[in-house]
Simulated assay, not measured.
Amino acid sequence: MDSSVRMLRWAAAAALVGLLLIYNSVEASPTSSTTSTSSTTSAASLPVASAPAATRLAPSGPTMSRSRPVRLEIPQLGLSAPFTRLRLDRSGVLIPPPSNNPNLVGWYGNGVTPGERGPAIVAGHVDTRTGPAVFLLLRMLDAGNIVEITRADGTIAAFFVDDVETYSKAGFPDRAVYGDTPDAQLRLITCGGQYDRTRGGYLSNVVVFAHLVSYRKV
């Protein structure tokens, strides 16, 4: 099965102020005989809120207070999916969304919530051992499309899609995806590209870049 998730680890960084988020891809073949949802690949590190406050970029665009996401809506894909909160296991690896519900997206609960300043990270499966999953068509999004996220505080945050990119996992641009931002942004991530049956996983990641343009009450 494929999981769009890359593993997350917190670690101290001597050369940076603050914390580093380590986010790896976790995946398994749709035809795998294992019951586990994960087989790991190499780690990639990135700074999250690593700059001193005095040197951070000035806020730009609307921002919202913290509130957990409840539902993801992408009208262009006919997608409507509930959220589950993702957490780290004892070894510091992100536990992917359950494989028994392919229409489920995950949000890293210790990260930025959608609408807060910074990049909120949302991940979902592209397929499972039983068939297609929630982010199967994620790569079909175009710049200008709208992604909406309903939040627990009764608001709906609307994000404008800026770009959709496919990156080799070997050359994943950590800073571009996870680096601090002056405004409220969203990253939707899944696996993509060629499937390597020898290694048991997809060779690339699909990443949607979006920014908050408005919000409203439900």
Rank of each mutant, 00 (worst) to 15 (best):
L104Y: 01
A152K: 08
L141R: 06
R139K: 14
T150H: 12
L94R: 11
V147C: 11
G78W: 12
A143L: 06
E165C: 12
L104A: 01
V134Q: 05
S91C: 14
I149W: 03
P69E: 11
L141Y: 03
P96H: 02
V70M: 14
L104D: 02
P132T: 00
T150L: 10
S99M: 15
L104T: 06
L141E: 03
L104F: 02
T113N: 14
F83M: 07
G118W: 09
R117T: 00
T155N: 14
L136T: 05
D142F: 08
G92W: 11
N100D: 15
R85S: 15
M140I: 00
G131Y: 09
L138T: 05
P75Q: 12
V126K: 01
N103G: 01
G144L: 07
M140V: 02
R90T: 14
E73P: 06
T113M: 14
P75T: 07
G124V: 03
R139E: 05
I146Q: 08
L72K: 09
W107V: 00
V147S: 03
N145V: 04
G111H: 04
L88N: 15
F83N: 08
H125S: 06
G106I: 08
D162A: 01
P119F: 04
D142T: 02
D163N: 11
S99K: 14
G144K: 00
G106Q: 01
G92H: 13
A120E: 07
G115Y: 00
F159D: 01
R90E: 15
L72Q: 10
R117P: 05
I74R: 07
R151Q: 07
R117L: 08
L79D: 10
R139A: 10
R139I: 09
L138C: 07
R151A: 01
G78I: 11
V93I: 14
A81T: 03
Y108V: 04
E148S: 15
D142W: 07
L77G: 08
P69R: 12
F83A: 08
N145P: 04
P96D: 06
I146G: 03
T166S: 08
T130Q: 14
L141M: 11
L88M: 15
A120P: 02
R71K: 15
A133H: 04
T166C: 10
A152Q: 13
I156Y: 03
G78H: 09
A81K: 06
D89A: 11
S91N: 15
